[in-house]
């Protein structure tokens, strides 16, 4: 498997199909990190396996002109598809080397983001690397984390999130790592007027996370990178997954799966069932 990843990346770089390839390499301490290589010779350093949790779509400069090769898992591939749907990237700009992801573990335990996996291979790719004993599949992911939140009464939910948001240090790692958080100027950076206060305090923390959750509604592909990157463990994945369920129940829309889809907020049906009364909200 690793051999075919190295072979393909090397071939694409060698024949000039791409200018750069984004994949993973192992550091001397044994940890795995994302890497961008530009020479075919460097392809021999590429690896894949446990630890390769990062969503490599975060490393694509959407406004750039370079042609980029990408090693994409299912979750990363959904981000690419959603970005294509939103008109932020042309399919031709990237060469996709898809992997049929076996699910990633850390110390023998499945990564939390893998529990929410919906599709284990990217929906679009140019070449697909097989993994021994793993077939490509699509499934309805477990919703245990969302169900746990929904089982609480509304005031308890609010209190729960208020206390979780309270320790946010507003480093914006969640925003910066998110492949779908691509505004040229974030609402937090706007000064005239300043909608969101930048200081760390409960009310502005709450406001920031709610704005982000709403901005990702119908767009988040549940890759879990926000959750994983948070230095203080704010449970952002469950918040975004809850929003995704709301959108799915109202409009039957799952982001990042169908490259021909229209963004859910860009579509309007005259007989829209949930136009005036959002049903299904619990």
């Amino acid at each position: 498997m690793i051999d075919s990843i190295r072979e393909t990346a090397g071939r694409w770089l060698g024949d000039g199909t791409i200018d750069a390839f984004v994949g993973f390499r192992r550091r001397e301490d044994g940890s795995v990190v994302p890497t961008r290589i530009r020479k075919a010779a460097d392809a021999r350093r590429l690896v894949f396996g446990d630890g390769c949790v990062h969503n490599l779509m975060s490393y694509v400069d959407l406004g750039g002109e370079e042609k980029i090769g990408l090693l994409l898992k299912g979750c990363d591939g959904r981000a690419l598809v959603q970005l294509m749907i939103e008109g932020e990237i042309e399919r031709e700009r990237v060469k996709v080397l898809g992997v049929v992801c076996p699910g990633l573990s850390s110390d023998g335990v499945l990564e939390p983001k893998c529990e929410a996996c919906r599709v284990n291979a990217p929906p679009v790719y140019d070449e697909l690397v097989a993994t021994d004993g793993v077939e490509p599949w699509e499934r309805e992911p477990s919703l245990d984390d969302v169900a746990a939140i929904e089982s609480k009464p509304h005031p308890d939910r609010a209190a729960h999130f208020a206390s979780e948001f309270d320790r946010c240090v507003r480093c914006y790692a969640c925003r910066d790592v998110c492949p779908l958080c691509y505004c040229e100027e974030c609402v937090t950076e706007k000064a005239r007027p300043q909608w969101v206060e930048e200081t760390i305090k409960p009310s502005s923390n709450f406001y920031w996370h709610l704005i982000r959750a709403y901005h990702l509604a119908g767009r988040c592909v549940e890759c879990g990178e926000c959750d994983r990157s948070c230095p203080v463990g704010v449970p952002l994945k469950v918040l975004n997954r809850k929003m995704a369920r709301e959108v799915e129940s109202m409009f039957g829309y799952v982001p990042g799966v169908d490259p021909e889809a229209t963004p859910v907020l860009l579509e309007f049906k005259e007989d829209e069932e949930h136009l005036l009364c959002p049903g299904g909200v619990t």
Partner: peptide
């Protein structure tokens, strides 16, 4: 234009076909 990401959703929602494509800072 500094804030625009060029998704052109505005063109889709514009009933009056008032939105055009432009270039700013090579995007």
């Amino acid at each position: 234009a500094m804030r625009c990401t060029g998704c052109m959703d505005c063109r889709e929602v514009c009933f009056y076909t008032a939105i055009e494509e432009d270039e700013f800072m090579r995007r």
